[in-house]
Simulated scan of single mutants.
Amino acid sequence: MSNLATLPKNGNLAKPNRVSNFPSFSTWFDDFSLNDFPALFSSNFNTGMSLPKVNIKEVADAFVVEMAVPGLKKSDFNINLENNALSISAELRENNEEKNDDYTRKEFGYSSFKRTFTLPETVNDSKINATYNEGILTVHLPKKEEAKQKPPRAIKIS
């Protein structure tokens, strides 16, 4: 970052024209920290589960999506392809009940996530497959034949 100009907190280079001793609206708003409400502004409102981390890598003949989602079963996932968009989602519902002579205790929970990725035109969507092993969901997106990397070859000069 350059130290050529020092900006005031409101980001304005012009000298503030203050009539009173009250801070300008932009200065007041800059002082208001969203860090005071981390759960409110950084969580995913639609889910009780944080979004899983994803690695996407390109290899010679495919794209590979790896998603870290431990503790789930294969049957918990929904993987759909629609209009060149791949969506991966999961939904978990828990309902535990414990009955005793003196009390009944019920606990329930719900969590879900959904990640959507726009696929490049080079993906052969009829050959997409997925595996789930040791907490990692892997989606293999093979490339169309014309998009695959071809090995280098020498060209002779005539």
Rank of each mutant, 00 (worst) to 15 (best):
S126V: 07
T138S: 06
E91D: 12
G109V: 06
F77A: 10
P142A: 06
D76M: 02
K106I: 15
T122A: 11
A85R: 14
K99Y: 08
F108R: 11
T116R: 03
I88M: 07
E94D: 13
D101N: 13
G109R: 09
H140S: 11
R115G: 00
S87E: 06
N133I: 09
E82V: 05
P120Y: 01
K114N: 13
L81W: 01
T131P: 01
I88W: 01
L137M: 12
L81G: 01
T122M: 10
Y132L: 00
E98D: 15
N129E: 12
T118R: 12
S89Y: 01
S126G: 10
V123L: 09
E97L: 11
F77D: 09
N84M: 12
Y103N: 15
D102S: 14
L86Q: 04
N80D: 13
K127P: 02
F108K: 10
L81P: 00
I79T: 08
S89T: 04
E91S: 11
F117G: 06
I128R: 00
P120N: 05
K114T: 06
I88P: 01
N96Q: 13
G135V: 08
L119S: 02
T138K: 08
T122Y: 04
I128Y: 00
S126H: 07
Y132K: 02
L86W: 00
N133M: 04
S89G: 13
I79W: 02
N100W: 05
L86C: 03
K74N: 12
Y103Q: 12
Y132Q: 00
E94P: 05
A90Y: 04
D102Y: 15
D76E: 03
N100E: 12
N95K: 04
L92N: 13
I79E: 05
E121K: 13
I136Q: 05
T116K: 01
G109K: 11
R105P: 02
N100D: 15
H140F: 12
N95S: 09
N96D: 10
N80W: 03
V123Q: 09
K106F: 11
D102N: 15
N78K: 14
I88T: 06
T138I: 02
N96A: 09
K114I: 10
N78T: 09
L141Q: 08
N133W: 04
T116C: 00
A130Y: 08
T116L: 00
R93V: 12
R105E: 15
E134P: 10
A90V: 05
K143I: 05
L86G: 01
S112Q: 14
K114G: 05
K127T: 08
L141Y: 04
S112W: 06
A90K: 04
L119Y: 03
L81S: 02
N124W: 03
D125S: 13
E91F: 12
E98C: 10
G135L: 05
L137F: 09
L92Q: 15
E107F: 15
N83D: 14
H140Q: 07
E91A: 10
H140T: 14
T138P: 02
T122I: 10
E98R: 09
P142E: 03
N129S: 13
L119K: 03
K114Y: 00
S87P: 07
V123T: 07
V139Q: 06
S126W: 01
K106N: 06
Y110Q: 06
E94K: 15
R115N: 07
K143H: 03
N84H: 11
Y103F: 15
N83L: 05
L86D: 00
L119H: 04
G109D: 11
E107P: 05
N80A: 12
K74I: 08
K127W: 02
K99P: 04
N84W: 01
K106W: 07
V123K: 06
